[in-house]
Design a protein around this nucleic acid. Structure first.
Length: 624
DNA sequence: ACTCGAGCTATAAAGTCTAA
DNA sequence: TTAGACTTTATAGCTCGAGT
C-alpha cells in the first residue's frame, strides 16, 4: 500500500495565476510521480506517459523581477481551464525539453497544447551549440553564465526520488527550475541570431508537442493476439532448449556455456577485432593473451549464433531454437512495453524532439523510429476513418550531397531513371558498357554498396571486405568515385578541413552543428541537411492541413519520411498536398546551382504501405 | 574499531533494434 | 561508417547489522 505523494492542502493561488495569465512569457516546469505502481524497480517511470503530474511550477516576469507560483496534485477542473487559457492566448510558453512537459500536461487540458512555444533545450542546440556539451537545464544555465544555487544543483541528483523529500523542498525545487528556464530564455533572446531559423524551430516544436499530445492509436486487440501467439511459441522454445541443456536462455553466460560446452562448438580463436568476443573479453585477453577464455569473454549476439547456423553443424536445429527464442523474446518485451505505455488511453505518445547533434529528431518513451517493418506492421493504426501512410524522400542524402556541393555530375546521376545503374557506369567504366543484363545486375548491387558505404566514410579495407574484392580494386573504386564527382570530393575535403579548424559546420539552412571529428563531416552535412528539409516539410504540411480545415495530420517523423494519419475522405488531397510541399521545401535558387537542377521526389508507395505503416487499415480499393 | 557479507541502488557495458 | 533509443545483465559502491 502506497501513501499518497502529497498531503493536502492543494496549492492553488488564484490571484497569482490570474497575474500569470497576463504575462507575455511564462516558463513551465512540472514534476511527475516517480514511483511505478507495478512490481519491481523501474527507474525512469517518471518519464513515461502514464506517470501522473504532481507539481506544476510557473514563472513569469513582472516589473523586471521574476515571480513564481506552484500547483499541486490532485488537480481539479480549474487547473485544466487555467492551462487551456494559458496555451490558447498570446503567451509564449517556455520550457526545457517542452515536448515532455506539454505531453504530460495535455492529459489535464484534454489534448490542448500551446500555440507559441520556446524550448530552451532545443534553442540551446540551435543558438549556442558546443562540442561535447550537455544541454541539461543546469549545463545550459552554466553555459550562459546564469548562477545556480548549490541547493538546486544537489537536488538534481535526487529527482528520481522526489517523493522522499518534504513537500516544501520539492515545491521550491520546481519553482527554482521554472525560474531558471525563464532566465535562460531571457539570455537566449539576447543572442543575435537569424530570426528565420528561430521561427522554424519554434513552429517545429509546436508540431512535435501536438504530435506527442495526440499520440497514435495502439491496435491493442492485435497486439494482445500477437503476444499470445509469441508467448506460446516462446514456451515451446524454452522447453526444448531446457531439454537440450540450456535452462536460462536469457543469460549471456549461460548461452556461451551452452554453445561451447554443451554443444561442443570449438572455442573461437581470440583476435583483437573478433566479433565472437565481448568488448570486455577482448580487453582482458589483449592484456593477458595467455589467460584462459571465460564464458563472460564470449559474445552470444544474434550474429554469432547465426554464423554457427550457416555451417553444417549437427546442432543446427537446436541453435535455430536459440535464435528464434532471442527474436521472440525481444519482440514480446517490445510489445509488452507498448501495452504498458498505452494503459491510460490506448494510444502511443512518443516524444519526438530535436535532440541530436546533426539536428535529426530522436523519438523516445516509446521509441518509434526503430520499428522493424513488417514485424511491427499493424501495431499502430489510425483512428476510425484514418489510415497511416508513409511518405518518404527518394535518394534524399545523395541529392543533398549534390545540392550542397553543387556537383552537376551527381545531380545528373540522381536525375537519371536508375540512380544505381548510373553510378555503376561511373565506377566500372568499360566493364559496365560491355556487361550483359545479368552481369549488370550484379554490378549494380556492388555500386549501391560503394555509393552508400563510401558516402559515410567506409575505408577501402572494409569496402573490399563487403564487396569481396581485393584492396587494390576497392581503392580504385573509391578513386573512380572521387574522380567522377570532383566538385563533391572538393567540398567534402573542405568540410573536413573546416571541422579540424573549428569543430563546426553550417548546414544548407545556416543551422550550425558541432562535429566531433573531421571524419564524419560529410555525413553530418548530408544527414543534417536532409533533417532540416524534413523538419520544414513537417511544419508546412501540418500548417497547410490546419489552415485548410483538414482533419489529416502528421503522426511521426522518421529521418527522411513523414508518417501521415490521413482522413479517408481527404485521401487524394492530403497526399498530393504533402508531396507538393515536401518536394518544394528547398528554395529554387539552391536547386538550380547544378545542371540539371535538383528535383526532389517524395511520394507514398501505397502497395508497400499496406504491409508497413498502413497494415490492418483501409486503403483505396478496399472495402471497409 | 574493524571486517564481512547481504541486500540494495546506481551506473556501465553489452546487446537489441532502427535510420541513412 | 555515422546517428540514435532502449533492455538486460554485470558490477561497483553504498548502508547496515552481525560478529570479532
Amino acid at each position: 500500500m502506497q501513501l499518497p505523494l502529497f498531503e493536502p492542502p492543494v496549492h492553488f493561488n488564484r490571484e497569482a495565476l490570474g497575474r500569470c495569465l497576463h504575462a507575455a512569457v511564462v516558463a513551465v516546469d512540472i514534476e511527475t510521480e516517480t514511483r511505478w505502481p507495478g512490481e519491481g524497480p523501474r527507474l525512469d517511470y517518471g518519464l513515461s506517459y502514464p506517470a501522473d503530474v504532481t507539481i506544476i511550477a510557473l514563472a513569469w516576469e513582472e516589473d523586471h523581477s521574476i515571480l513564481t507560483t506552484v500547483l499541486t496534485a490532485p488537480f481539479d477542473d480549474r487547473v485544466g481551464e487555467f492551462l487551456k487559457d494559458l496555451f490558447a492566448g498570446n503567451t509564449l510558453v517556455v520550457a526545457h525539453n517542452a515536448v515532455f512537459d506539454i505531453r504530460q500536461l495535455s492529459k489535464l487540458t484534454g489534448g490542448h497544447t500551446p500555440d507559441h512555444l520556446w524550448d530552451t533545450y532545443v534553442m540551446a542546440r540551435l543558438l549556442h551549440p558546443a562540442v561535447n556539451a550537455s544541454y541539461s537545464l543546469l549545463a545550459v544555465a552554466a553555459a550562459l553564465g546564469i548562477p545556480v544555487s548549490e541547493d538546486q544543483q544537489s537536488l538534481k541528483s535526487q529527482r528520481g526520488r522526489l517523493h522522499t523529500l518534504p513537500l516544501s523542498i520539492a515545491l521550491d525545487y520546481a519553482q527554482a527550475d521554472a525560474r531558471l528556464s525563464l532566465q535562460i530564455y531571457q539570455q537566449q533572446r539576447q543572442i543575435p541570431f537569424n530570426t528565420e531559423l528561430i521561427d522554424w524551430e519554434c513552429r517545429a516544436m509546436r508540431e512535435y508537442c501536438r504530435m506527442a499530445a495526440r499520440g497514435v492509436r495502439l491496435n491493442t486487440p492485435f497486439v494482445e493476439q500477437r503476444l499470445s501467439e509469441l508467448g506460446q511459441r516462446r514456451d515451446i522454445l524454452v522447453r526444448r532448449l531446457a531439454e537440450d541443456g540450456l535452462t536460462t536462455p536469457g543469460s549471456p553466460k549461460a548461452r556461451a556455456r551452452y554453445l561451447y560446452e554443451t554443444k561442443g562448438i570449438p572455442l573461437p580463436r581470440y583476435a583483437p577485432d573478433s566479433g565472437y568476443f565481448t568488448r570486455a573479453g577482448r580487453r582482458r585477453l589483449a592484456a593477458q593473451p595467455d589467460a584462459e577464455i571465460q564464458w563472460s569473454d564470449l559474445s552470444t549476439r544474434t550474429d554469432v549464433i547465426e554464423s554457427y547456423l550457416e555451417e553444417h553443424s549437427p546442432y543446427r536445429e537446436r541453435l535455430q531454437d536459440l535464435a528464434d527464442y532471442l527474436e521472440t523474446d525481444w519482440l514480446m518485451s517490445t510489445l509488452n512495453g507498448l501495452l504498458e505505455h498505452a494503459v491510460l488511453d490506448g494510444r502511443l505518445h512518443s516524444l519526438v524532439t530535436i535532440a541530436t547533434d546533426t539536428g535529426r529528431r530522436a523519438s523516445s518513451y516509446p521509441h518509434m523510429q526503430n520499428w522493424k517493418m513488417p514485424a511491427m506492421a499493424g501495431v499502430a493504426i489510425g483512428d476510425d476513418g484514418f489510415t497511416l501512410v508513409e511518405v518518404d524522400y527518394s535518394n534524399a542524402e545523395n541529392m543533398m550531397a549534390a545540392l550542397i556541393s553543387a556537383d552537376s555530375n551527381l545531380s545528373a546521376a540522381c536525375a537519371a531513371e536508375d540512380f544505381h545503374s548510373t553510378m555503376a557506369g561511373e565506377y566500372f567504366g568499360a566493364v559496365w558498357k560491355e556487361a550483359d543484363s545479368t552481369q549488370r545486375q550484379r554490378l549494380r548491387t556492388m555500386a549501391k554498396k560503394i555509393t552508400y558505404g563510401t558516402a559515410y566514410g567506409m575505408g577501402a579495407e572494409r569496402l573490399a571486405d563487403s564487396l569481396g574484392v581485393t584492396l587494390d580494386e576497392a581503392v580504385a573504386f573509391i578513386r573512380a568515385k572521387d574522380a567522377a564527382f570532383p566538385q563533391m570530393t572538393r567540398l567534402r575535403a573542405a568540410a573536413q578541413q573546416q571541422v579540424r579548424q573549428t569543430g563546426l559546420l553550417k548546414l544548407w539552412t545556416g543551422r550550425q552543428v558541432t562535429v566531433p571529428t573531421a571524419f564524419v563531416a560529410w555525413n553530418y552535412l548530408c544527414q543534417g541537411g536532409v533533417s532540416e528539409m524534413l523538419k520544414r516539410a513537417l511544419v508546412l504540411v501540418s500548417e497547410a492541413f490546419e489552415s485548410g480545415g483538414m482533419r489529416s495530420h502528421v503522426a511521426l517523423d522518421i529521418h527522411d519520411a513523414l508518417i501521415l494519419e490521413v482522413a479517408h475522405d481527404e485521401w487524394d488531397q492530403a497526399l498530393a498536398l504533402t508531396s507538393q510541399i515536401m518536394t518544394s521545401v528547398v528554395p529554387n535558387e539552391l536547386n538550380h546551382r547544378t545542371n540539371p537542377p535538383i528535383r526532389w521526389r517524395a511520394h507514398p508507395n501505397l502497395a508497400q504501405n499496406r504491409h508497413k505503416w498502413g497494415a490492418q487499415q483501409w486503403h483505396p480499393g478496399n472495402d471497409k
